[in-house]
Design a protein around this nucleic acid. Sequence first.
DNA 1: CAGGGGTCACAGTCTCCGACTGTAATGGCC
DNA 2: GGCCATTACAGTCGGAGACTGTGACCCCTG
Lengths: 300, 300
Amino acid sequence: MTPELRHLRYFVAVAEHLSFTRAAVALRVAQQSLSQQVAVLERSLGVRLLDRDTRGTRLTELGRLFLPEARAVLARADEAVATVGRAARGEIGRLSLAFLVSTANYMLPPVVRAFRERFPEVELTTEDVTIGDLVTGLREGRYDAAFTRPPLVDDLTTRTLVTEPVCAVLPTGHPLADRAELHLRDLAAEPWVLTSPASWPPWHQKYDRDFARAGYAPDVVARATGVPNLLGLVAAGVGVSRLASSARSLRRTGVVFVPLVGERAETVVVWNPSVAKPVLRNLLDVVTELAAAVDLTRAG
Amino acid sequence: MTPELRHLRYFVAVAEHLSFTRAAVALRVAQQSLSQQVAVLERSLGVRLLDRDTRGTRLTELGRLFLPEARAVLARADEAVATVGRAARGEIGRLSLAFLVSTANYMLPPVVRAFRERFPEVELTTEDVTIGDLVTGLREGRYDAAFTRPPLVDDLTTRTLVTEPVCAVLPTGHPLADRAELHLRDLAAEPWVLTSPASWPPWHQKYDRDFARAGYAPDVVARATGVPNLLGLVAAGVGVSRLASSARSLRRTGVVFVPLVGERAETVVVWNPSVAKPVLRNLLDVVTELAAAVDLTRAG
DNA sequence: CAGGGGTCACAGTCTCCGACTGTAATGGCC
DNA sequence: GGCCATTACAGTCGGAGACTGTGACCCCTG
């Protein structure tokens, strides 16, 4: 029979008190039970650990050697329990985050900074991804959470972190460029530059609805992949576009951002609700707090 | 309640087989008992380690993290048991040896070499001591064993390792120096150089008996402390002496060693019989073997 | 020197934990 | 639908580990 942790605890207690009687009191068991269990330990090791007689108890040579061993085993066991406890509270572990390329610019730094400050021992990995990779990555468990723009899909849960104005994006010198604000219908006659609808149909269905509500279908003269490219095309005077105002930080020259009345863009954190990971809960807490405390669209 | 090693063993088995049923077979317990004990472990940790349903068992995120922890605890426990086992077999531990200064010269190197070869992990300390320190050191447990010359005392156990001739020690050019052998009575008229009787009475009582048997009391003209000094006095022509032949190695010039017929000197290993230390048994085995195999008086 | 307080060990009893058996619920596959 | 997996639930049993009571022994003290 191989010893159990109880036997080691008992032995350590006796070794520390150098008395079965006092150790038994400390362990809240009867002295006789303690004697018995230590004897079991000694028999299972095939070794005498304690010299006991009527005037007390002393460690044998082997007992002196085994004491630190027993302590080490107990300490390792405590550590294992503590580790799993901390993991259960989400204080350690791995967290994989995905950022939509167009939100990474302003979301990643504050999010990562805030989370690492609160949970420095969580191994954090981040990736900039396209919307397609983001959704499949969340579904397949490759990412624990992601930051992106709605609308998304029903099987993933989202929480809105930021809402910001949507702006018309015009080339510098455009006739409407000095307006304080615009309506979407003001741009009915303009040539448009938009992203490719293949990237994420739900977005483009929303755009289509917006344009339909404004009473026209835009004359799309160019398609860009990625916001920087799109801004480049606008700066080149190819056409106008519409973007969340936080995109302003991606290009400072050649384009003008004019708020579109009544249009808002959201940035959300999204996760797979079937994954119940403690670290994830902590991330959600941190980013929710963070979004309430600071204006993330300006934090990049 | 804090987990026992059994719980960890059970969990590791299930995690390795990814099946309660198969793990139960391997552990030679019923599946139901195994399920119950793993559930106890999970409850005591406050954490779900395994996802189980009708089509099998998989580790949870936390289970995956706890598995190496559990393995580490079990490994540490095994190591502790193995360590005390090796200590019980005398393969590890500490061994403190004392050598009488006059025997250290030829005994220490072969003894230490042989022992370290057989038991390289025993921490060996050696000390050259006078006979008085040697005896009290053994009695007080400061040394585990010592190498010296008899006679000693009843409360210490001795085992003879080497017997060798006793020689008359004469200055070079002494009239008797070219004899092949001598009897003690041949030296009745000589001036004698001996060690101080205060060093260890039992020795000098034996000397006195030897001289009495030879029919005279020696004319002691000088007392030396330590064999090298004694040899120096003989070389200086102060007188003659008698020493074990192994003392030859301490001085090569100015003295001549002539065997004394019928006189033998012993070198013994001595230990405290009330100390039952596994390393000590191994030492005794090694030196007994060693003494049987080689002539230790020439090994220095 | 006797008595009290301390040590640990032995013997007997009891309780509860961890094992067992038997059964149920469920899912995948032919 | 029946068969073969899986794990879970319920009830029973045996033994390990707890307890109490007692004894032997040592040391100190009055």
